[in-house]
Nucleic acid binder design. Structure first.
Lengths: 186, 186
DNA sequence: CCGTGTCTACCTGACGATAGATAGTCATTG
DNA sequence: CAATGACTATCTATCGTCAGGTAGACACGG
């Protein structure tokens, strides 16, 4: 039970931000969900900015761990990409939530610096991973891989956002299929 | 000066939401920008939800008007698409703002119903327009046009979001170029 | 084995700031 | 005169934050 409360706070905070944004996250509501008092959250995270930073940092780390394990399976490129887009698809299907970084990016000017930095880090991490995955599959030049990686990350993020805005999860899969058909997605 | 204040409120509110999200919009700050008192805004928009709804509705209408005028110019398809992506690019270059609907979509669960409805309407409008533009240029079947239209709208939205998150406007143009190179964008 | 000190993991209670909202007032304009 | 458009003043709710307290666990010197 030691550091478990800290985990539960981070988990609950993540789910809230993915659904309602950084502004929709309040210490009191969060505390009620976890089953403690709001002041206790300050014990673990002195300020909201530190909570947001820890949250985003953790998110990137978890995401990266999953993706790296995926790359080690040495799947063929289309399957690997399908797994990648599935991560975002599952988030969407799971109570209509979007990528934490996308949620935060929309409110960028409202964020403390430490959170903003983490949002950018998440983007770079995805870009790096995608570039690696692409270069392993096709013999394209590094710069072309990087450009394509950015495009894929942006496109997948957008698909998630507009599918949710329309309240239709199936739209995500349809858009991803269209990306594949057009040649954007291997 | 009659209905002019109302316009100034809507304009200022739009800029704020595009930068800081719906939650970042407050009556007091907005009033200060316009040069009136917060109570006076309630005269025009009794609740925040009504302000948000009017704002999003106006945004969609203005956007649609511009796009329809674009279509009437009967440009070739690549040029037409370039004009379309330029709209989002200009928004981004203009003080690092994103599409109003994308900003709102990220906070979807925080929005009053009337605003949520308008966000979905904006998406449908873009999809409809893009489908029309595509069908005028290439002899593709209607359903294929629609799917492609959705994909383009999603991809462009995503490009805007991640370019801002990374704090690099040039990233948007690069991603758009990559969409074109991969075949997603005509 | 007892007492003292320190640490963890919370809690109570309150702070000032700010949020959206409203009732009532008043000057200007047609 | 009556409608319009803005005002003052205030309400209640909620926000992040903080000072300070407490119950229990653990270590250690005598």
């Amino acid at each position: 039970m030691a550091a478990e409360t800290r985990e539960r706070i981070l988990e609950a905070a993540r789910l809230t931000v993915q659904d309602r944004g950084y502004g929709g996250l309040s210490f009191r509501e969060l505390a009620a969900e976890v089953g403690i008092k709001s002041a206790s959250i300050h014990y673990y995270f002195p300020t909201k900015g530190e909570l947001g930073g820890a949250l985003a940092s953790r998110y990137t780390a978890d995401f990266a761990a999953y993706l790296d394990a995926l790359l080690e399976q040495e799947l063929d490129l289309p399957t690997c990409m399908a797994r990648y887009t599935d991560v975002f698809g599952n988030t969407l299907r799971n109570a209509n939530r979007i990528c934490l970084a996308a949620s935060l990016a929309a409110e960028l000017s409202e964020l403390p610096d430490e959170v903003r930095i983490e949002v950018a880090r998440f983007g770079r991490m995805n870009e790096n991973w995608l570039a690696r995955a692409l270069s392993a599959g096709v013999a394209a030049e590094p710069e072309e891989c990087r450009r394509r990686a950015r495009a894929i990350f942006a496109a997948v993020t957008g698909a998630q956002l507009i599918a949710r805005a329309r309240g239709d999860t199936a739209l995500y899969d349809e858009v991803i299929a269209s990306y594949r058909a057009s040649g954007l997605l291997p």
